[in-house]
Amino acid sequence: MHLPFVTAQFHKPDVHLPGKHELASATEAVRAQLPEPGQALFYGGLAAGVALSLLEWPVALAIGVGTAVIGRERHE
């Protein structure tokens, strides 16, 4: 397209789509960071307690962080 004093150029974007191997390694990396089902249920219970105003959020945060720190020390 040519207009006086203006030239527009359109380019096809260069998009890289991941292959099966890249998706598999990304999936494994995410799974390694997720908590176990029991831990997820515990943290979900804390979140539900805050949402239902059974716990104040600073208390739930302290319980969650404390549990995570103790769990990591046991795991290592």
Rank of each mutant, 00 (worst) to 15 (best):
M1P: 14
H2E: 10
H2G: 12
L3P: 01
P4W: 00
P4N: 10
F5R: 10
F5M: 01
V6C: 02
V6D: 01
A8V: 14
F10N: 02
H11W: 05
P13E: 04
P13H: 02
P13F: 03
V15M: 11
V15F: 13
V15S: 08
L17Q: 12
G19N: 13
G19K: 00
K20Y: 01
K20V: 03
K20A: 01
H21A: 03
H21M: 09
H21T: 05
H21P: 00
E22Q: 00
E22I: 00
E22T: 01
E22V: 00
L23H: 04
A24P: 01
S25F: 02
S25E: 13
A26S: 10
A26Y: 05
T27I: 07
E28P: 00
E28M: 11
E28F: 07
E28N: 09
E28H: 03
E28C: 07
A29D: 14
A29K: 12
A29G: 02
A29W: 00
A29E: 14
V30F: 12
R31C: 14
A32S: 14
A32L: 11
Q33M: 14
Q33I: 04
Q33K: 15
L34T: 06
L34M: 12
L34H: 08
P35Y: 06
E36F: 12
E36I: 06
E36R: 15
P37D: 11
P37S: 13
G38P: 06
G38K: 11
G38I: 08
Q39N: 08
Q39M: 13
Q39G: 15
Q39V: 02
L41F: 04
L41E: 15
L41H: 14
L41I: 11
F42R: 12
F42V: 13
Y43T: 11
Y43L: 15
Y43R: 07
G44P: 06
G44A: 15
G44N: 14
G44C: 07
G45V: 04
G45W: 05
G45N: 15
L46I: 09
L46G: 08
L46N: 12
L46P: 03
A47N: 10
A47Y: 05
A47I: 00
G49P: 12
A51S: 15
A51V: 06
A51K: 09
L52H: 09
L52A: 15
L54H: 06
L54N: 04
L55V: 02
L55N: 09
L55D: 11
W57Q: 09
P58F: 01
P58N: 01
P58K: 07
V59K: 09
A60C: 10
A60K: 11
A60D: 11
L61D: 10
L61R: 14
L61F: 09
A62E: 12
A62M: 05
A62I: 00
I63S: 03
G64W: 02
G64C: 07
G64E: 00
V65N: 07
V65S: 08
G66N: 12
G66P: 04
T67M: 07
A68N: 09
A68V: 11
A68F: 05
A68C: 06
I70W: 05
I70F: 09
I70C: 03
G71F: 04
G71W: 04
G71Y: 04
R72F: 13
R72H: 11
R72I: 08
E73Q: 10
E73D: 00
E73S: 03
R74I: 12
R74Y: 09
H75G: 02
H75P: 03
H75Q: 08
H75I: 00
E76C: 05
E76V: 05
